[in-house]
């Protein structure tokens, strides 16, 4: 917040990555990554295990030296200016890095002292953060007795002690149950509301959708797609309207009628005979009305109607050609109750 040198209107992106490369032995963990994150926004870096997400965060937080390329974070070069950079960033890693033997308060107080706060300020800040992350009651207990969610919140609190301008969240909810995950999301949303720039890596499509305004899909060390959440979905084909005629024999007649309507992209309408469903790609919301009105005026009876928005899982599948690795129980609820994902991704 107060730590960024650049003013919001004039400033370059808070994070600017160009051609970042990192090898580990023979494997290229990062293979020329380009990214921009505007100040005060959340970039979701989405990818399966081993895609290079953690390596990216490690390079941007001075834990690893990149082999090639440049990365500027709030104007600081990660290679040439690590000391200044470390005053600007906060990191919450995949594994909570709080000290289990220390109480929550001690953990935060220590971070405050390491950030050169006076004893008094470190104490005050620790208490503020405990309060804010609803840990005041557990303040005196050793962190190893905390639940997974509490540890993660303490970890976030520790990252926030120094009021970082840029926060890296490396899979912040991996291994958490759905309810705890929602708690962590709420905290992250609150931090973003306070103007922090966030780079979030995740394997969970739902998480990216919830938190990120922009997405970068990363696979085998390369960014394979970028854009807003909606933009990416549109790339994969946008929304689909499903219609079932009351009389199955009218399916092909219905398809012809719709195809002749001349609406944008409507030629892609296709019939699935076995299911007795007509699939109509919809690029604009008003086309929904148009299609239904058209069918009504032509006198077609309809027994079922539904729309399907591709989930990010499907987006990912369509872009990288491989399934994301999210755990089944964590998959986002299917938006169209009776549609199998393959139907749309195909």
């Amino acid at each position: 917040m107060t730590r960024i040198d650049t003013s919001p209107e004039a400033g370059p992106p808070a994070i600017r990555v160009r051609g970042l490369v990192k090898h580990y032995g023979g494997t290229k963990a990062l293979d020329g990554v380009d990214l921009d994150v505007s100040e005060g926004t959340v970039l979701g870096v989405l990818g399966p295990n081993g895609a290079g997400k953690t390596t990216l965060v490690r390079c941007l937080s001075t834990l690893e030296l990149p082999d090639a390329g440049t990365a500027l974070v709030a104007g600081c070069d990660v290679v040439n200016d690590p000391r200044r950079l470390r005053r600007i960033i906060g990191l919450t890693g995949q594994y909570a890095s709080v000290d289990g033997k220390l109480s929550g308060w001690e953990n935060l107080y220590m971070i405050g002292r390491l950030l050169d706060l006076s004893r008094k300020d470190a104490r005050r800040r620790a208490e503020e953060m405990l309060e804010r992350f609803s840990l005041t009651e557990a303040a005196k207990r050793p962190a190893m007795q905390y639940s997974g969610g509490m540890r993660r919140r303490l970890d976030l609190a520790a990252s926030m002690i120094g009021q970082p301008a840029v926060l890296y969240l490396d899979e912040p909810t991996t291994g958490l149950d759905p309810r705890t995950r929602k708690e962590v999301w709420a905290e992250v949303q609150r931090m973003v509301g306070e103007g922090v720039t966030v780079l979030l890596t995740t394997q969970y499509m739902e998480e990216a959708e919830q938190l990120a305004s922009e997405l970068a899909v990363i696979d085998r060390g390369k960014v394979v797609a970028t854009g807003g959440v909606d933009e990416l979905k549109a790339k994969v084909g946008g929304r689909t309207l499903k219609i079932r005629p009351s009389d199955p024999s009218q399916l092909s007649a219905m398809q012809r009628a719709v195809a002749q309507s001349g609406l944008d992209g409507i030629a892609g309408a296709h019939a699935a005979v076995e299911e007795c469903l007509l699939y109509v790609p919809i690029l604009h919301d008003e086309h929904l009305t148009s299609v239904i009105t058209l069918l009504g005026t032509r006198g077609f009876g309809i027994s079922h109607i539904g729309t399907h928005l591709p989930s990010l899982d499907e987006v990912f599948l369509a872009i990288t050609g491989q399934k994301s690795t999210s755990v089944p129980s964590d998959e986002p609820a299917d938006r169209a109750s009776d549609t199998l994902p393959e139907e749309v991704a195909a």
Binding site: T62, L63, I89, G93, Y95, S97, D99, L114, G162
Partner: peptide, 13 residues
């Protein structure tokens, strides 16, 4: 082995 060192390393110390 625990993540502590990583956090310290991202701090200006």
């Amino acid at each position: 082995r625990t993540g502590s060192m990583d956090r310290f390393r991202t701090m200006p110390i």
